[in-house]
Design a protein around this nucleic acid. Sequence first.
RNA 1: GCUCCAGUGGCGGAAUCGGUAGACGCGUCGGACUUAAAAUCCGAUUGGGCGAACAACUCAGUGCCAGUUCAAGUCUGGCCUGGAGCACCA
Length: 825
Amino acid sequence: MKKEYFPQEIEQKWQKFWEENNTFHTPDNSDKPKYYALSMFPYPSGKLHMGHVRNYTITDVIARFKKMQGYNVLHPMGWDSFGLPAENAAMKHGANPETWTDENIAYMTKQLKMLGLSYDWSREVATCKPEYYKWTQWLFLQLYKKGLAYKKEAAVNWCNECGTVLANEQVIDGKCWRCDSVVEKKYLSQWFLKITDYADRLLKDLDKLEGWGDNVKTMQANWIGKSQGAILRFKVAEKDMEIPVYTTRPDTAFGITYLVVAPEYKDIEALTTDENKAAVEEYRANARKLTEIERLSTDRIKTGVPLGTHAINPFTGEKFPLWTADYALVEYGTGAVMAVPTHDERDFVFAKKYNLPMKVVISPKDKELNVDEMTNAYTDEGIMVNSGEFNGMKNTDAKKAITQFAVDNGFGEFKTQFRLRDWLVSRQRYWGAPIPVVYCDKCGIQPVPEEDLPVLLPKDVDFSVVGKSPITTSKTFKDTVCPVCGGHAVRETDTMDTFVCSSWYYMRYSDARNSEKCFDKELADKWLPVDQYVGGIEHAILHLLYSRFFTKALYDLGLVGFDEPFKNLLTQGMVLKDGSKMSKSKGNTVDPDEIFKNYGADTARTFILSDSPPARDFDWSDAGVEGCYKFLNRVWRLVSTNQDHIHFDYKVPENRTKVNDDLVRMVHISIKGITNDISNDFQFNTVISKYRELANAISDWVNTSKWNEEDENVFSFAILTLMKLMAPVAVHMTEEVWTSLGAKTSIHDEKWCEYDENLAKASSITLVVQINGKVRDKIEVDESLEQEELKRVALESQKVKDLIDGKQVVKVIVVPKKLVNIVVK
RNA sequence: GCUCCAGUGGCGGAAUCGGUAGACGCGUCGGACUUAAAAUCCGAUUGGGCGAACAACUCAGUGCCAGUUCAAGUCUGGCCUGGAGCACCA
C-alpha cells in the first residue's frame, strides 16, 4: 500500500467497485434477522446540503454496523420529488418540472454515491414517477371508499404566494411553512383526509413508541390536543332554538352569566334581533378582515357585541344574554362558549370590559371570594358554592356529577374533544399526484376506476399562468367520461399534498418494483416497521403524524399487519455554522462537494459524527474537518509504515509481556466501549473519540516495539481490529487498507468484533481513598482485592495516616474495585 | 400561560449504577525536525493560594438557592437563563 493517504483516488475506486459488484443489494430472503434503517428521503432541490450529509451518514453507519452484527439490513433511498419548487423553477426558467426534477435527482444521486452510502439502489423510488403515484392514487381511492377521504366546503388556509391551500400543519405562526407569507382564510370546497377519526389512537399509541424521544411525542400529543369535558345545550329564550356548548368546566355551570358564539357561527343571523343586526353585521365584517395572526394574538383586547337574544341556564332557569366575540373559534368545539367570568381568565377580562355580571361558584378552601374585589379569575380547585344541590362538593368531583345531571335531564352529554383537524390534502398546483376522481353532471363525484390508474399529469400545460393551477390550462386533461353513466365528466384538477406521497414511501421500499400492487403484504410485513428512522425534528408533527395515520388506516384496510410505522426514531439536530443555521441568505453554507474534493468523503463522514451527539445541533468548523483529516492520515501512516508486521493469520499469545498485555486489553476495552456507544443511542461522537484513543495507544506501543513474533501478533490483532471498528465510518479507507494487506474479501462483509469481558477490565485499578468525601490518595491495587483488603490498604496509606491522626474513624465505606471513603470526626 | 429539552474550561463536548469532574478533539502557548516554511512529532493548557522556578501541597469549581447522602455534574424541591413546540382550544 502507498505510504501516503490519497482519499479521492481510493474513494472513486471503491465506489465504482461497490456499484459494479452490487455490494449493497439486500435480498428479501435471508436466514439472518432483518433490520430496516431509513433516512427521511430528500426533496430533490438540486444539491445536497450538510444537513443531508449528517442525516445520511448517521443512518449509513447504523446500517453498516447492523450488517456487521449479522443482520440482513434494508437501507434504501428515494426522492420526495413532487412539490412546488419544481413548478416555480419551470415558471422562472421555462423548463419542465419533470426535467428539472430528473436533473436534480441525477446530480444528487451522484453526490450520495460520493459520500459512500450503502444504499440498495434497486429499490429506489421517486414519488413523481407514474409507477409510484399510481399507487398513491390507488391508496387515496381505498381511503375514499372507506369514507376517510371526503370533499367539503370549509374555511381553509390560503397562501397567495404559492397559489394554493395549505393544511393546518403547514401554517406556522399564521404563515406559510414554505414561503413565509401570511396565510389568508378562504371558503373553498376541498378534499380532506379524516385523520380526526384516528385522533384517539394516534394519541394513545404514542405510549407504544418507546424508541421515540419525549420531545416528539409531546409535540404530537399537544398537536392532537385531547380534552375531556361536556356538551351542554342551552335553550334560546326568544326562539325555538338550542345552542350546544363544549366546556371542560361543567362544574362552573351555575356561574354562567353570558354566552358567546363565534362571528362565523352558523345560526348567528337567526339569533340576532333586528335592533342589533347592524352592529352584529359590522362586527362580523371586521372579524373577517383580520388576518389569522391578528385574530389569534393572545394580547389583543377582547371585543364583542350583544346579539339581543338570551339563553336559559337549564340548571338555574336564569336568563343570560348572547354575545358574539372573536375569541370564540368557530372550528373548535361547537363554536359557542359558555362564559363564567369568575372562573375563566378570558371571560373575566371580557366581562370587566363590558360590565357583565359575575357570580362565584367555586370557593378556595381558605378564604371567601368577593366578586367586587376580584382582580382576576379564580381557576384553581375549590369547593362548590351557589350551585344548588352540588354545594359543598369538591369542584373536581362536581364536573362529573353536573354532567351526569345534564345527561339524565336530556340537555347534555360527556364529550371528548380534540384540537386536531382533518388533513386538507388538495392543492391547486400542477406538480403533484392528481386526485383520481371525476365530476359527472348526473352522477356527481365518482372515483376513477382502479384499472384506469394512474391518472397521468398532462404535458400540454402553460406554466406561465397566474391565479390558477397550470394543470387547468391543459386541453386534454379536464374532459373525460363518467365511469358510471358514460356521459360527460370533468376531472378533478387539484393534486395531492406531497405529504400524502411521503406518507407511505417507506412501505414501497419493501417491494419497490411491484407493478401489480402498491406492495406485497407479506414483504411489507417482513420488513416493517422501520427499525430505525432518522431525520430532522422539523417533521415532528407533519410527516411523522401523517405517516402514523396512514399506517393505521392501511392496517384497518388489511393492507399491512402493523399499525405503527417507525419503531425507533432519531431526530438529528441542525448543522450550524458559527452558531447559526446554515442558509444561503446568510452566506454561511458549506458545500459538500468542496469537502469531498479537498478531504474526501471519509473525512466528511468522520467529522460530521465527531463533535456532537446526533440529536444535538452540530457546529461546523473548518478546523474540526482538518483535525479529522489529520486523524485519518495518522491512522493510514500507522498502517503503511508498519505493514510488513501485519498478518491476517495472527494468534494473540496467551502469555504476554506487560506492554503487550496492556495493548491487548486496550483493544478489548475499545471494542466494548464502541459497541456500547453505538448500541446506546448512537453516540458516534464518543465512538470517534475511542477510535482516537485506540490509535494513540497503538502508536505509543509501536515506539517501544521490538517486532518479535509476539509483537507482530499483538500488533496485527490491534490494527485489524481498529480497521473493523472504523469500517462503518471510514468506509473507503478501511476497505483500501484491508485489501492492500492481502484480504480477499471486503471489510464490509466482516463480522463485528467481539470482546472478552475479562480482558475489557483493567488488570489493576486505581483505588481512590477519600476522607469525608474528599479525595486524599490514589493507590494502585490488584483488581482482585476483596473489600476488607481494600479497607486495610487504604488505612495503611501514609497520607491517610497523617490526615486522620488524632481523629476518630466513624465509618469506612468500601466500593468494590473503586473507592474507600473514611469518615472521621 | 402550558409542555418538552438543555445549561460542565477559551470552544465542541466526555463522565453505564450517585463514587477520581473536564476523556477525546479544536484553539492557544512552548519545544523538536528544517536554511526556511508546510507537514509531522513531543510537551503544557479549569481558576485561585503558597513557591524565583520545577515539583509537591492546598482551596474553590459542573446556571442559582436549599435538601437527601459517607459521597451529588448525576437524585429531590424551588428558582434563573436559553432553545423548541402548543396556545383567546372554552
